[in-house]
Write a protein that binds this DNA or RNA. Structure first.
Lengths: 353, 353
DNA sequence: TTGAAAGCGCTAACAC
DNA sequence: GTGTTAGCGCTTTCAA
């Protein structure tokens, strides 16, 4: 139960612990013969470095922390994959935690990761606008910063002008604008907006883009056509089924994300509505999980994995050439629509539904 | 850049560092007034515990390590979710790493996680049978064990009789047997087995169950009907498309997992083959990603998330009532088929295809 | 090229 | 209830 320590190795090899440290780190010259003896001792003893002792004594532990809502949701797992890959490429280990949408847990995990002295803590995905929560986060961002670490906001709104954070965004509003415009261009004027937690920044941004497109084309805002709720297939299915039983008219559905689109398509199918012949459908995110949909889903591509990678890259102190002051970086990645088969042009004054 | 330490807090609160430690850990009585002063000092200084120092000084750091092939593949992300949830419920942090199927990386990550003194290292998913790799793993299992940690094999074959590991399996062979039997019962005799890396234990187990069912019903093994390869939609799509252009006859497809089934369904569709009218299709795993498929996919349910949870639970030393010697646990979870709409009974001597 | 020794920040006896 | 102190296992000057 007691592990070998560097001293055990030193003793066995007949050298000092400093020498063992040197062969372990390859940072100072060590005579080949000595090196061999030490390596032999290491093997014989089954010695394994203690990362804690090492972190305590000197250099950082090279870890990144990431906080998501749910590891299974492709939106998050794609970003997580990007983070993990970039991290491991820069020799870092990745600590993940999931909040299930609980802001309390979010704060608790930021603290936990700070305790672990993660090089950075990456907060992923939209946030509810909550004044006091933002304050708490801002405080932690400062604490992290003070310790040479960073809070990264990935796909998440800023928490204040003067708060030291790194931010990786994507053009959420723009994507929603573009796809709404696509629908409008195809003759759809009454578009049902379906899904997304109403107070989530992600939802607000997508709705904003949607409305801007509506405005631009002179189509009115029809409040009854906006049905926010959740980001799940279950919501899409359930709510749209309900709506289909009502008298609400629309010729297209803008699902707040692909997961909602999955449920929506199912509802449409069950109601005997043909897509895209009777109703057009679009999604958002372009996740692989929606690839099996038929008709193939027209959607907005979001560079999820790249966002994950950029998060760790941007928050890595002085990596590469230009020595950045390690912090306060910000990028906004582009989005674009992917036209597939779920939208059909409407004839002028077609009956829609 | 210099963080406050426990001594800074002690000084500011006018107490000793031991007292600060006590209020931090709530493990010894501290006068309320003292406690208040300490907590104030902590807040004023923005003090954050150093988990490394803590781990070094005494108690374990309460972390678990998990190694998967790909965070985005639902098979792995569901297990990862189970691990993460169980871990966080027992107050542990979860460190993930992904190998992309590279055995070298796998070993490297086991080492890395050992260095981090993870309470356990969970290896997820099938393995290629590789003698020397198993030897390496076995060595690491022993090293981990010697240090009071555990190597957990989750959905992965044993690496030796006398190697100290914890094992969480599922009835892989049984599920394949059951679903093949289902197909057979429905009159399908020529079943195409599609996908899965040929030397992966997962594939071998599934094929074994498949063959046992074939044997039991007196249906012969037809080598041409077995097309292993990969676990991806792309493989399912590509290979099945090819096959459909050939003269090979079969009335059902057993996709090695749901991802392959997704691709297979697409290929069938593109070839104008109706499912299940012309050809029946089944999958394996029952992951949410396959839920949108139409017809709904008949498949084998695997308790992925539960496997993740059990992994953590089983490897946790002396948790709960019965004090286990913390190691050498093994469970095998059941699987069962989920009948949905992708299989149709064949009339006696129907033409199949 | 190697060794001695002083921490890194915390916990856990052991005193008081 | 609280303080003192001795490590935990490593890295890193500083000497030799």
């Amino acid at each position: 139960m007691r592990r070998a320590t560097i001293n055990d190795v030193a003793e066995r090899a007949g050298v000092s612990s400093a020498t063992v440290s040197r062969v372990l780190n390859h940072n100072y010259p060590v005579a080949q013969a000595t090196r061999d003896r030490v390596e032999l001792a290491i093997r014989e003893l089954g010695y394994v470095i203690n990362a804690h002792a090492r972190a305590l004594a000197g250099t950082s532990n090279r870890t990144v922390g990431i906080i998501v809502q749910d590891l299974v949701d492709p939106f998050f797992s794609l970003i997580a994959r990007g983070v993990e890959r970039e991290a491991s490429e820069s020799g870092r280990l990745c600590m993940v935690s999931s909040t299930r949408g609980d802001p309390e847990r979010e704060l608790a995990f930021v603290d936990l990761l700070h305790e672990q002295r993660a090089d950075m803590v990456i907060l992923v995905g939209g946030a509810h606008s909550d004044r006091s929560h933002s304050k708490e986060l801002a405080k932690r961002a400062r604490d992290l910063h003070a310790g040479g670490s960073r809070l990264v906001l990935c796909g998440r709104p800023s928490i204040g002008q003067d708060v030291p954070t790194v931010s990786v965004e994507y053009d959420n509003e723009g994507g929603a604008f573009a796809i709404t415009d696509h629908l409008l261009t195809q003759g759809h004027e009454r578009i049902l907006y379906l899904g997304g937690p109403p107070n989530l920044s992600t939802t607000r941004d997508r709705l904003a883009g949607h409305r801007r497109a509506l405005d631009m084309r002179g189509a009115g805002h029809v409040p009854e056509l906006v049905h926010t709720g959740a980001f799940s297939p279950a919501f899409g299915h359930h709510r749209l089924s309900e709506i289909l039983r009502s008298t609400l008219e629309f010729s297209a559905v803008f699902a707040a994300n692909d997961m909602v689109a999955i449920g929506a398509l199912q509802a449409l199918e069950e109601a005997g509505v043909r897509v895209p012949d009777d109703i057009s459908l679009v999604g958002y995110d372009d996740v692989p999980a929606a690839l099996p949909l038929r008709p193939r889903l027209t959607t907005v591509h979001v560079p999820l994995e790249e966002m994950g990678r950029q998060s760790v890259r941007l928050a890595s102190p002085g990596e590469g050439d230009g020595w950045r002051p390690a912090g306060e970086g910000a990028v906004k990645l582009g989005t674009h629509i992917v036209v597939r088969d779920s939208v059909r042009a409407r004839g002028p004054r077609g009956s829609g539904r």
